[in-house]
Simulated assay, not measured.
Amino acid sequence: MKISIKDITSLPDQSKKFKGDCEITEFSYLGSNFSINHIEPFDVVLSMIGTGKLHITLNTTATVVGPCDRCLTDVSFQVPASVDETVQVSEGQVVTDDDIGPYPFVDGEDIDVDELILNEILVNFPAKILCQDDCKGICPVCGKNRNIEACGCDDTVLDPRMAQFLDVFNSFKEVK
Rank of each mutant, 00 (worst) to 15 (best):
M1F: 06
K2I: 10
D7R: 07
D7F: 01
I8F: 04
I8E: 07
I8H: 02
T9W: 00
L11D: 11
L11W: 06
D13T: 06
D13G: 04
D13Y: 02
Q14T: 12
K16N: 13
K17R: 12
F18Q: 13
K19S: 14
K19Y: 04
D21W: 05
C22K: 00
E26N: 14
Y29W: 14
H38L: 14
E40I: 06
F42Y: 15
F42M: 08
D43I: 14
L46S: 10
M48H: 03
G50W: 00
T51A: 12
L54D: 04
H55G: 11
T57N: 13
N59H: 06
T60Y: 05
C68L: 06
D69C: 09
D69S: 14
C71F: 03
T73N: 07
S76W: 01
F77W: 02
Q78V: 13
D84H: 12
E85N: 15
Q93Y: 05
V95Q: 10
T96L: 02
D97Y: 06
D98I: 06
I100Y: 07
V106D: 10
G108H: 05
E109I: 09
D110N: 14
D114N: 15
V123A: 12
N124M: 07
K128M: 11
L130K: 03
C131F: 01
Q132F: 01
G137R: 00
I138S: 10
I138Q: 05
P140R: 10
V141W: 06
G143K: 10
K144Q: 09
N145G: 08
N147Q: 08
I148Y: 03
G152V: 08
G152W: 04
V157G: 04
L158I: 14
P160T: 12
R161P: 01
R161T: 09
M162S: 15
M162D: 11
F165G: 13
F165A: 15
F165E: 14
D167G: 03
F172Q: 14
K173P: 00
